[in-house]
């Protein structure tokens, strides 16, 4: 059992949890992920590690309440425990020691993962520009944290209710047009956002790293459910990734693959048990 040490609602649909897992905290690096299973009947769900504290022995996850399992996880409170928590899985993000300036782009809850990347780069002495995109003001998360680790933080909202109105790619294009030179762009967020960031940087030949979140079961290369096409070759995101060269990823295929179980999820979602409020019957 893995204890929830801290629980914090970042907005209506995004929650932060610090989980007690000293052996994982000891090894975790930016870009890696964990798999959790809330209880005996739960699914195994991968989440990228948002932060870790080696001394406290905790791993931080930030998740959007989108499906049955994240909803169930969100019913737990501080002091409760999760049945299974395994990691750190996947390959850590490779930080190029020669990079001087990197643009980190996050979309929605993806900012929770973009933030530790920015932090790692910042701590390595690399200049960081960060573009954080949200739908609207009420779902902005981690603004102070992101501000602290970036040289420039640009907040973009779809409706203009906060920061600047527009997409992250509008801002990226603007920065490139203004003559800013980036050694690398790191994009983490909805697949469609990562696809368009990669399309924006491609003409300029800027190395672009994306972090993928396909469907997976075991996270160790065993099921092959997470396969993605990268540069025409099939890769397993769990062991070969989750980071890949954005210019090589077949985003359209990934988008389709991630919808596979959505119909079932949608029908399941309509029912919320009024007796338990979504908690599982013991």
């Amino acid at each position: 059992m893995y204890k929830i040490v801290t629980k914090r609602c970042l907005n209506d649909s995004v929650t932060l949890m610090e989980i007690e897992a000293p052996h994982i905290a000891r090894k975790a690096k930016a870009g890696q992920f964990i798999i959790f299973r809330v209880d005996e009947k739960g699914e195994r769900i991968p989440l990228t590690i948002a932060d870790y504290d080696r001394e406290k022995g905790t791993v931080t996850i930030i998740f959007q309440i989108v499906g049955a399992s994240t909803k169930l996880l969100n019913t737990l409170e501080e002091g409760d425990s999760i049945l299974d928590f395994v990691g750190p899985l996947g390959v850590a993000t490779h930080i190029d020691p020669n990079a001087k300036r990197v643009c980190v782009i996050g979309g929605g809850v993806g900012n929770a993962i973009a933030y530790p990347q920015a932090k790692a780069l910042h701590n390595a002495g690399i200049q960081v520009d960060m573009i954080a995109g949200f739908r609207s003001k009420d779902i902005v998360i981690l603004e102070d944290e992101m501000g602290a680790v970036s040289d420039h933080l640009y907040i973009m909202t779809d409706d203009g209710s906060y920061g600047e109105k527009g997409l992250v790619t509008n801002k990226l294009q603007q920065l490139i047009d203004a003559g800013n030179k980036y050694d690398e762009v790191i994009a983490i967020g909805p697949i469609i956002m990562m696809k368009f960031v990669a399309a924006t940087t491609k003409p300029y030949g800027i190395k672009t790293l994306v972090s993928l979140n396909p469907i997976m079961v075991d996270g160790t290369g065993m099921c092959g459910g997470c396969r993605v096409k990268v540069g025409g070759q099939t890769k397993f995101a769990c062991v070969d990734g989750p980071d890949f060269d954005g210019h090589e990823v077949d985003f359209d295929e990934l988008m389709k693959r991630n919808t596979f179980y959505r119909e079932r999820e949608t029908t399941d979602k309509e029912h919320v048990c009024r007796l338990t409020g979504g908690k599982r019957n013991a």
Partner: peptide, 16 residues
């Protein structure tokens, strides 16, 4: 076509 929806490895299908 191996990346189409509905193609499983036996490992994934059996594990699920």
């Amino acid at each position: 076509g191996e990346d189409l929806l509905g193609v499983y490895s036996a490992n994934e299908y059996l594990t699920r």
